[in-house]
């Protein structure tokens, strides 16, 4: 097997494009309440940045910058914030997940939930990719 040499074209393009992809991911994520998009789609777009970096710089190097424990922690953080928003309605004495319970437009709690979903999806997809890619290297 020929060793893989980083191509300056690829690495440079990825560097330039990554911030735009992240912005677009955020845009998609936050637009879920009124247009095409949402936490799942935005999260996957954000995760594609990690995949791109892994393609351009190699899996092991990318994983060194983004260790597994941090990925799992992010996934848990997303899940727990979703649960927190959902459970907060109970504290106010409303049904579970009631987004109208907080005296603000339901858009805001829903956006928080979308971000939570996005964080979870992005980290889970990234983690899965690393998990499968690492097994491939071994």
């Amino acid at each position: 097997m020929k060793p893989y040499h980083e191509s300056p074209v690829v690495t440079h393009t990825v560097r330039v494009v990554a911030p735009f992809i992240l912005t677009f991911g955020l845009f998609t994520l936050l637009h879920g309440t009124k247009s095409v998009g949402g936490g799942f789609q935005g999260g996957v777009i954000v995760a594609s940045v990690a995949v791109l970096f892994a393609f351009a710089f190699g899996v092991s190097q990318t994983e060194a910058t983004l260790p597994g424990v941090r990925i799992v922690a992010f996934a848990a953080l997303g899940l727990l914030s979703f649960a927190a928003v959902a459970g907060a309605a109970l504290v106010v004495g409303r049904p579970f997940l009631d987004t109208t319970a907080f005296g603000v437009s339901p858009v805001y709690p829903v956006e928080v939930i979308e971000v939570a979903i996005g964080v979870t999806v992005a980290s889970v997809v990234t983690g899965l990719f690393f998990e499968l890619a690492r097994a491939d290297d071994a």
């Binding site: 690829v10 990825v14 494009v17 992809i21 677009f24 998609t28 789609q41 777009i45 594609s48 995949v51 791109l52 393609f55 351009a56």
Partner: peptide, 11 residues
């Protein structure tokens, strides 16, 4: 999104 996927696919 499709353009993005296409880019990832090429690389």
């Amino acid at each position: 999104v499709y353009a993005l996927l296409n880019f990832v696919l090429s690389i």
